[in-house]
Structures are given as structure tokens and as C-alpha cells.
């Protein structure tokens, strides 16, 4: 995650001032919309769904800005909201459209195949398909670590989990993905 943390800290202070709040929040959106979008997009795969969830994430953050006490950094707090929004969306989608995790995997695979904004080659598409075989929370951990290189300590705050558990989860995720590639004879 390539974020200017000093600038974010300064903007976080400005959020406390009612006169500067709106402008500071717009700057935060400018800085975080890209990484948060990719975080969501890698989970839901479809651009339209990711766009809706990104908007919901920032709107929820804006509405709850008074409750942000600064216990964690603002970007960690927004990542946390985005993760919750995404996992809730996937759970609702599963309830609405499918009855099993296999059907859900198929639904997401169709999203991936129909996605006109997928720029990856065949190997990358295969990797995405392998990632889709993971449970959702493990998928979240894998994406944050493999694609965004988020430190385990930050991931622990975002996921409400221990560093040890997250390291184990990532390790298992990699094993499962390797196994999928091994089976592709």
C-alpha cells in the first residue's frame, strides 16, 4: 500500500474541525479511493459491484466520522469498513442467488469471465480462479498480503484477528492455490 501517512495524519486532524472537515474528507477519498477500490474489486470481481461498495464504504465513513476516535489510523478504519461491506455483500449475494459455496464460486467465476476490464493473461486468470476456491475471509487475507503487501499488524486491525492467525491463514491459502496449479495437468 503506497500511502502518504503523514498527509493522512494531517487530514485526520482536520476532520475534527467542522469548517475543514468536508475538504479534508474529499482529500482522503482522493488518496484512498484507489487502494480501497482494488481491495473490494479483488473480492467481488465485477467493476459495477465494486463501484457500489466503494461508494457505500466512503458514505458510511463520512456518516460515522464523529465516531472515529483515532484509535487506529484512518486508512485502516476505512479498509475495515470496506472489508465488512464486501463480506456482507457476498453473504447477501449467496443467500439471494445460490444455495452452496460451489454455486457462489461459479457465480463469481462468471463475473470474472464476463469482465471486460480484466487485463491479466491466461495464467493470471487461472490464479484468480484458484483464489476463488478459498473461503471468503481467507481470500481477503490472501489479497491483502499478496497484492497489497499490507503488513500483518495492520491486517490484524482490519480483520480483528491476531498476527499469528493471519500468517497461518495466508500460509494455508498459498498451499491451496499451489495445489490447484498442481492439479492442472
Amino acid at each position: 500500500m503506497n500511502i502518504n501517512r503523514e498527509e493522512l495524519d494531517r487530514l485526520t486532524l482536520e476532520l475534527k474541525d467542522e469548517k475543514l472537515r468536508s475538504r479534508a474528507f474529499s482529500k482522503i477519498v482522493e488518496m484512498l479511493s484507489k487502494p480501497v477500490y482494488w481491495h473490494i474489486r479483488k473480492m467481488v470481481l465485477s467493476h459495477d459491484d465494486a463501484d457500489d461498495l466503494l461508494q457505500n464504504t466512503f458514505l458510511k465513513a463520512w456518516q460515522a466520522i464523529d465516531s472515529f476516535r483515532g484509535d487506529s489510523q484512518i486508512h485502516t478504519w476505512i479498509y475495515k469498513i470496506a472489508s465488512n461491506e464486501t463480506l456482507t455483500f457476498l453473504a447477501q449475494q449467496r443467500l439471494r442467488n445460490t444455495s452452496s459455496s460451489l454455486e457462489m464460486e461459479e457465480l463469481l467465476l462468471n463475473n470474472l469471465r464476463a469482465d471486460s476490464y480484466f487485463d491479466g493473461d491466461e495464467l493470471e486468470r487461472r490464479l484468480q480462479e484458484a483464489i476463488l476456491t478459498l473461503p471468503e475471509k481467507q481470500r481477503l487475507v490472501f489479497n491483502m498480503r499478496y497484492y497489497d503487501n499490507i503488513p500483518y499488524e495492520e491486517m490484524a486491525t482490519i480483520c480483528n484477528n491476531s498476527v499469528g492467525a493471519l500468517k497461518a491463514s495466508y500460509h494455508h491459502a498459498v498451499k491451496k492455490i499451489e495445489a490447484v496449479f498442481k492439479d492442472d495437468d
Binding site: W38, F118, D119, D121, L123, E124, Y147, K182
Partner: peptide, 18 residues
């Protein structure tokens, strides 16, 4: 086995989406 060059230990995956 399908060969790949993903370095899962380094954690620097290329984003395949646009």
C-alpha cells in the same frame, strides 16, 4: 502441473484488473 512464476513469499502480485 501448470507452471507459474508467482512469488507468494514476496507478496507483490500484479493487479490483473482494470
Amino acid at each position: 502441473m501448470m507452471e507459474h512464476n508467482f512469488d507468494f513469499d514476496r507478496g507483490s502480485g500484479k493487479n490483473p484488473f482494470g
